[in-house]
Design a protein around this nucleic acid. Sequence first.
DNA 1: CTGTGTTGTCTATTTGTATAGACAACTGAA
DNA 2: TTCAGTTGTCTATACAAATAGACAACACAG
Lengths: 249, 249
Amino acid sequence: MQVATSETAGIARWRQIADSLRADIAEGRLAGALPSEMRLAERFAVNRHTVRRAIAALSEEGLVTAARGRGTFVAPRPGRIAYPVGPRSRFSENIGAASREPGGSMVGATREPASAEIAGLLGCGIAAPLTRLELLRVADGAPVIVSTLWFEEARVPGMVAGFAETGSISRALETLGLSGCRRLWTRVSAIAADAHDAERLHCPLATPLIQTTSLTAAVSGEPVQYARSRFLGSRFELLFDHAVGTTTD
Amino acid sequence: MQVATSETAGIARWRQIADSLRADIAEGRLAGALPSEMRLAERFAVNRHTVRRAIAALSEEGLVTAARGRGTFVAPRPGRIAYPVGPRSRFSENIGAASREPGGSMVGATREPASAEIAGLLGCGIAAPLTRLELLRVADGAPVIVSTLWFEEARVPGMVAGFAETGSISRALETLGLSGCRRLWTRVSAIAADAHDAERLHCPLATPLIQTTSLTAAVSGEPVQYARSRFLGSRFELLFDHAVGTTTD
DNA sequence: CTGTGTTGTCTATTTGTATAGACAACTGAA
DNA sequence: TTCAGTTGTCTATACAAATAGACAACACAG
């Protein structure tokens, strides 16, 4: 709720106000009618036009709709999706469980040599040929997750065609005889959306994203997939249940 | 690596460049000497002065040091701390395990009535008196985590004094006969640092933060603590190990 | 020592952001 | 119908950001 008064840290005041209002909407602190432009201008200690600029941005994103004479209203929009993450959690099931329509598509596929990092994780040779897939996941038609997946070609061949045929990574793995794969671990950090991801996710530049990396292994324990995903922070809350005791200690 | 060319989305070009370079540094893609200002200006398709402005910001943050005639260099700085999160993971142990000096202080303590949300989580009455603590955690003297903790006073009395005496939440709980507490679950999202947290964490406004909420229970299963924490995204990577199988499915 | 490369500083201009004022057009309650 | 409240639009000005050019000061290799 605070807007930097003098030093703006390179972020326009209107953008700060838009971000603040967006966060309030995401956290459920703002719903229905927004305070009037004049009220918001007082609250944020800025000129009314600056508030208008912020609201215009939110309107463009579809988060609010303004009506002359009546006010500005938060558009009906689902809150954060509680997204469970575990050894076998899957996008379609999670989204379906949240009563959203899951969907997605492959937006890129390429072949590249394994970097030292990925080689170490997948247990393959440095520079071994990898298949790299770029997936865009949507919920109710809106893009929400961008993922980059890496598979070693020798061990997991034909994933591009497999995904094209089955529309699902786990089903494509199954057709390769790799059923029962499980995620070994997930690492989570937070980043700001760059122009590339912002375009894919239809969000403003520098929107906070949850970034995860994870390693998935076959039943044998052999790593089969390394993935890096970016979730819209305002749309997701990853849920890790410690009830059975995650063995980090 | 892309800077918005025409429409800046309310984020100054210098800020975008600073953010991009900061991310590269955080991900280990940039170390030692940075490309020269002229080279960076070419890469980002901006005037050299704009690059200088970005570097000035990073220099202010202590991420880089510039030397006339020699170039600009990434300051020695630890990468991301892999921070395990589980039922019993604790700040001091995690930071110590990462060979950093843990520290911290209570920066705020207040009493407030339980909101419906917190009442539901802690299993107490709405408007029941809560103790709310604000903690600032540092690693090697640098602030890295801001946490807000809530305890029901009737069940967990005197936490302010307890933390003041012991310097630790878990030890304060132990003096109340609440040993063996465990975290039941952790939820993770990503937010942008507001002016308040930015000041506490000594980071630029809107820096991406990992936000977690978690519920901790006594051995009896009775909830004793609800916490909300904000971690610097560039300094942390939360690690969730699924090896034993987190029961989210 | 010279020349190339790099950062640092200064001046100037253009563009974007923020502020200000005013009025139009619409809404909804009294 | 009137009036207070609200958003929408237009014009104008001040300040910050971005760009441009030039030169100084330093580093380092040949």
